[in-house]
């Protein structure tokens, strides 16, 4: 017993300061891409050609990047001869609509908070049921991490629950494989309304690396109404947390907002 207490004391308090402090991310972290369209050369489409998921598209004279498809591999930035694409350390990626995930210009379309009625219902207590409907278990791993002492998700009143009957919404990961579609829809049916759907990761938003595969759908929105999209392959836990807190309007005036 003394040994346990001693270990407990020595390991100390490990919960991060976010969102009251800005998150600490590694220097090589690849977050929101920044576009410098003025550097684009006419007719050049090197970035679009190297992109594994067609996330990078020519857009008028410049380019657009669909974060819903982006794997954040930065192959486009590497290939660009003029440096028109850079990946910044900005972790804030989540958005409420599919179109808001497309980076075309300087404007950031971050996830808006739920309406007042929904915030009254979910703002201080949100119970989520996770469904893994394809994918690779990395999104699942970084969702699980949110419940560790480091992120301590429950301090925000957010918890993952075992039964859809106890949940206010679903967190969906994976493309939605043909073999998981029925199970996903049944789980959704079992959640009492009003309910939210949160799509986490490139697969759940667009199919990710598996876009267009015969064995899967191209993301959760193909069969469910999605309220929040969290891009990444997989998204960093801070990116997921940022999305959840924005959805609930819980970041106002905190350091983590910026």
């Amino acid at each position: 017993m003394l040994r346990i207490l001693n270990a407990r004391l020595r390991q100390g308090h490990r919960t991060i300061g976010y969102p009251d402090a800005a998150p600490v991310l590694p220097d090589r972290f690849r977050g929101r891409p920044a576009l410098h369209a003025a550097r684009c050369e006419t007719g050049c489409r090197i970035c679009a050609d190297v992109c594994p998921t067609q996330a990078v598209q020519r857009h008028g004279a410049g380019i657009a990047i669909d974060l819903g498809r982006c794997l954040f591999c930065a192959d486009c930035a590497q290939a660009c001869p003029t440096g028109a694409i850079t990946f910044t350390g900005d972790h804030r990626l989540a958005a409420r609509t599919r179109d808001d995930l497309v980076v075309r210009d300087e404007v950031r379309r971050l996830a808006r908070a739920l309406d007042d009625g929904s915030r009254r219902l979910f703002g201080r207590s949100l119970k989520l049921r996770q469904v893994s409907a394809g994918g690779c278990n990395a999104c699942e791993a970084d969702l699980n991490v949110l419940s560790t002492v480091v992120f301590d998700l429950s301090r925000f009143g957010i918890q993952f629950v075992a039964s859809p009957r106890h949940a206010d919404g679903l967190v969906v990961t994976g493309q939605v494989t043909s073999n998981m579609k029925t199970a996903l829809l049944k789980t959704y049916e079992a959640v009492p309304p009003p309910k939210l759907v949160i799509a986490v990761g490139a697969c759940a938003i667009s199919g990710g690396p598996y876009i267009g595969h015969e064995a899967c759908l191209d993301g959760a929105a193909a069969c469910l109404p999605v309220d929040l999209f969290v891009p990444g392959c997989p998204p960093h836990p801070i990116t997921i947390l940022d999305g959840l807190l924005r959805l609930l309007g819980r970041l106002d005036g905190r350091a983590g907002e910026h």
Partner: peptide, 20 residues
Amino acid sequence: YQHRGLERVLPGGPTPRTIH
């Protein structure tokens, strides 16, 4: 349940997607 048809799309590569 997680079957994504992965092995079937690899022949003909490598493509930009293969490493992913």
